[in-house]
Amino acid sequence: MKRKLQRARDAFGPMQVIALTFLVLLIVLSMVAPAILPDPLAQDGSHTFAPLGTSGHILGTDAFGRDLLARLMAGVRTELMVAFATTLVALVLGTALGIAGAYFGSVAETVTMRIIVDVILAFPPIIFALLIVTIYGPGPITLTATMGVLFAMSFARIAYGQTLTVRRAEYVDAAHAYGAPTMTILFRAVLPNISAPLIVQASLTMAAAILLESGLSFLGLGLVPPAPSMGSMIADGQRYLATDPQLILIPSVVVVLTILSFSLLGDGLGRWLDPRRRNAHG
């Protein structure tokens, strides 16, 4: 137990602690925001472009007099939810593809790794998203599904490579020899032993999903206005860059810090779950 704690301490430096604190704060704030902040969609024609520190509007208001902090928190909430759902879809789909391709080989490998993964990776992500949104229309469901499929491909590659190694381990042979059903081998012998790099990838995917979501919303392909999102707030704000720079700066900073935090967390997780480190500390 003590060793485990020591290992965690070695892997998570001060940067990771700051990142984790920031994320926890952001999540808590965005969850309680609806109860304590004004309605993010309520327009107030008399209070447009209120500056920072206005009473009732700590971060001021936008061109329609909507509370910036409330919109920010609502944006963060949807963004985190979309990113989380995206990561979950990507993790499950990608891992399944990768394991199936590596474990069963031959035809399964051609179908999963060549026909599905390589073809999708050949599309530039923005073009792929444009295509899907054009067909199905924008919205959180389309967004999650599109990004989930896109990000699943890197999970598939990782799972594929890891499974190729694990498949040859003698404990998989042993499971075969002692009559384990295929599903038992996949879920009990293969999956637990390839999980570490997948968990790290999940954390990095959270960051990438927020980035892509912001980009798509900025282009109007993500969440539909007037629903707040970081990307659309940045897009709206750029018109008033000269007069009211806080409208673009504040959401930008929040996006950057969120992405950075997830990346830092991913680095820490990577160090923590690295089996070589595990050996070093028992």
């Binding site: 042979d173 002692y178 637990p192």
Partner: peptide, 15 residues
């Protein structure tokens, strides 16, 4: 039944 050569790889590390 079979006993494998390398005892460090023939046991599932997560079981």
């Amino acid at each position: 039944a079979i006993i494998f050569q390398d005892p460090s790889s023939s046991l599932n590390p997560r079981a």
